[in-house]
Design a protein around this nucleic acid. Structure first.
Lengths: 192, 192, 192, 192
DNA sequence: TATGAATGAGCTTTCATTCAT
DNA sequence: TATGAATGAAAGCTCATTCAT
């Protein structure tokens, strides 16, 4: 693996777990077994490294998510929704996804990161909104915009609490209640 | 106002908005019109300042929250739940509460803060859990533990999204749908 | 002496002899027996240190020059000119003046220094022009502007060559020929 | 053009305008559209590049100057002097010459450059001294050594002031007064 | 010949902390 | 109580130079 990839890999890990400010270039070098010069050879500065890390992380997450979106054709709106939520909750257990939740949280509260990634973040939020709205559009009792905002926010909240509590967090049970809640709200029957 | 209070006041603001790491003692001094020596006279070091800031912030938030808890006696479980959620959503608009959400988010992401405040955070989470469980205990179809975790997480998520998006975030509509969702899940009638 | 003065003193010496870019803050600290932190406590950054150094140097040079200007009243224009040139040449041997010539040369060729000191440099050039023009104004055959420019440039050139060659540079003889040259040009009798 | 020539060309420009220290190898590569490896293939290190640049620059300047020296035979000492000064002043407007004045100034100020080029500089100064002394030898009232030093220094000074002030610097008028000054000093009639 | 990845020393600057006053 | 001078470690970054290809 090229040193550039090593650096990005390590940076993802450290930015997500310790935050951008607290992660020194030196720390990245130490973990990636690379010299400081190498980092600045491949990335103009720390901010550019951050941007490349963000993009790389988005790609990884997209790969994970593409698996679901694939074969939902022909399903009813209800089934699509269940499918999507099911997938989201299940993927929360994946290390890549957990890292990405932590990473996004860092972005949210560190002004430096927000400033650097502003454009990229907005793009991603719009994408998520669109993906929920596409499904909700076919459900008469849904409020496309509001429910999408709500879904995103709640999933965020659960993911964050799960990632940071992890041990004995009743994720599976929450998932069931969460899905049922939405089915009821949207006028469907509960499942299970 | 004593210099110590000035320092804490400024520190709350800066820790919440910029994060603990990014907030230098110098910055605090500048904003509080106080000398560096004064800070280290009143607080052993930066970490102790952080702890005092956390405690001070908790007190402020408790004052806000006590107003509701006060007169819920004699109400039905359903009414209590609606009351509580209503209060939580409404208080999200208060500057003090927004600051506290930002502050807690900072704690979550920044390992330094977490390490310093670990004990205090756990206490607060337990308190919130207890407060929800007390209400849910009287509702047969509720799953006390799971639903409490879920409620806390979702409210967290919504608060965070609201605080950082603020402009044109449909908080009021989300609140309505959110409450109805829970009423349906717990076997009550929708309201409004 | 305060540490701030020590720093400025050392910085003058090093900026003049080695140049601004080549003079590291570390080097200044080492020579001034001061910590790096002390430098940045007293000066916002290296550029501000440069500006303060320039101003301090200008003050020193002004003190030297004030001695002459003092008692020229009542003298003829010719005598005033001779006096001034005499003083300038004599002061070239002073360590302070040599340092200032070197310093000004550094400013001239280092774009960073020029940029930082632009305003201060222009002020000083205007002052020198004025001081020569005041004397030449009373000499009919002089061309105030042109001769002032020429005088400044030539003195610069001689000072530079003297400072950097020093050993066995015939400064005294040059002074005599230099003054006579100007007396002849301006229509006076040679002296000596 | 060979890559080596490209590098030298760019290095002249950058060393003269920005100084040796401030000019990084990377900058040279960028301007010359050449890789870093190429520079170190053609030149052992940065100092050797400097020496080759100096030599190349000297050749360019010599070509310019040879044009005059060529056909001065048979002229009187006075005419030779006027010729030489005339040529020097006129050539100040040439871009090559201006670059060379800046370059020489850089050498003077930057100890690194001086150290590397010491021998080459002394050679050039001796050459200039000789060229003036040859002419002055035939003028009884001249002081060969002293006047040569003075001429060199003054021309230096004027060139420097001209190059760095450029806009609206009265070079033409200075030239006239300068030549007349020397004619008077050496016992000749003024011209024009 | 030529490339560019990689290194490590050194640069300016920030920062929590100490201490004499 | 309060000041601010002083420290030294560590941060982000630049740069000449080396080397495998």
């Amino acid at each position: 693996m090229g040193k550039k990839q090593q650096i990005i890999q390590v940076a993802i890990e450290l930015f997500a777990t310790q935050g951008y400010e607290k992660t020194s270039i030196s720390a990245i070098c130490a973990h990636a077994h690379v010299s400081k010069g190498a980092v600045f050879h491949h990335f103009k500065n720390k901010e550019e490294l951050l941007r490349e890390v963000f993009i790389h992380m988005a790609e990884i997450v997209n790969e994970v998510d593409d698996n679901v979106d694939a074969m939902t054709e022909g399903l009813s709106a209800k089934e699509k929704l269940i499918n999507l939520l099911d997938h989201i909750f299940m993927s929360m257990a994946l290390p890549e996804k957990q890292l990405s939740y932590q990473f996004e949280l860092q972005i949210l509260c560190q002004s430096t990161m927000r400033a650097v990634l502003e454009d990229l973040i907005e793009d991603r939020y719009r994408l998520m909104m669109a993906s929920f709205q596409t499904i909700l559009r076919d459900i008469p009792s849904a409020d496309g915009v509001v429910d999408s905002h709500m879904l995103i926010a709640e999933i965020d909240g659960i993911a964050i609490n799960y990632v940071f509590a992890k041990d004995d967090y009743p994720l599976e049970e929450i998932k069931k209640r969460f899905i049922n809640k939405y089915l009821l709200l949207l006028g469907f029957e509960k499942i299970k």
